[in-house]
């Protein structure tokens, strides 16, 4: 079976890879590129653990073909921090205990960052509906929502 040659940009770096048509972007990230921060909770777009940005749109990497990434700009959880400094969301999640097991955390962080890029002062309701596609079974969402709201407020006051 011929593989497709793909050139893409991930977290600011150029990548090339070969993929089978049926491989999803999530398969490629995890299996071919060893970027294991994006998690597979369902592979059907229902849990959000594989949330990534593709050309500035929040998507589930499990619902994108690897081949579709050609010429695209992909951002994953591995690209949230820069050098040794964490994204304020990452730091706030640690400070407020907004994670327990941590499996949903990469996807939640990518999704929350996307929200704050689009909406500087989201309401609690807006945060909750924006994150409705990111399932978390441990936290009951309370501390996640608080962390996102606090980071938004601190960014506004900065």
């Amino acid at each position: 079976m011929p593989k497709t040659h793909i050139s893409t940009q991930i977290n600011g770096d150029s990548y090339e890879f070969l993929c089978n048509t049926q491989q999803t972007l999530l398969d490629v990230l995890r299996q071919e590129l060893d970027l294991k921060g994006s998690k597979e909770g369902c592979a059907t777009g229902d849990c959000g653990a594989c949330s990534v940005m593709m050309d500035d749109r929040l998507v589930c990497a499990c619902l994108v073909l690897g081949a579709e990434a050609d010429g695209k700009k992909i951002e994953t959880v591995e690209g949230l921090s820069s050098g040794s400094s964490l994204d304020p969301l990452q730091q706030k999640f640690i400070d407020l205990a907004a994670l327990q097991c941590g499996i949903c955390t990469p996807g939640v962080l990518v999704a929350a960052r996307a929200l704050l890029e689009k909406n500087k002062s989201p309401s609690e309701e807006e945060v909750r509906f924006w994150l409705a596609g990111n399932l978390c079974r441990c936290t009951g969402y309370d501390k996640i929502v608080r962390a996102v709201l606090e980071v938004a407020a601190e960014a506004r006051n900065a």
């Binding site: 294991k36 990452q90 640690i94 941590g102 499996i103 962080l109």
Partner: peptide, 21 residues
């Protein structure tokens, strides 16, 4: 008190290795 958890950074950066990782 409420200190940061030791595995916090690994979990928020995607570095933590789970079963399938």
């Amino acid at each position: 008190s409420r200190p940061a958890r030791p595995d916090g950074v690994d979990k928020v950066t995607g570095r933590a290795l789970f079963g399938a990782d």
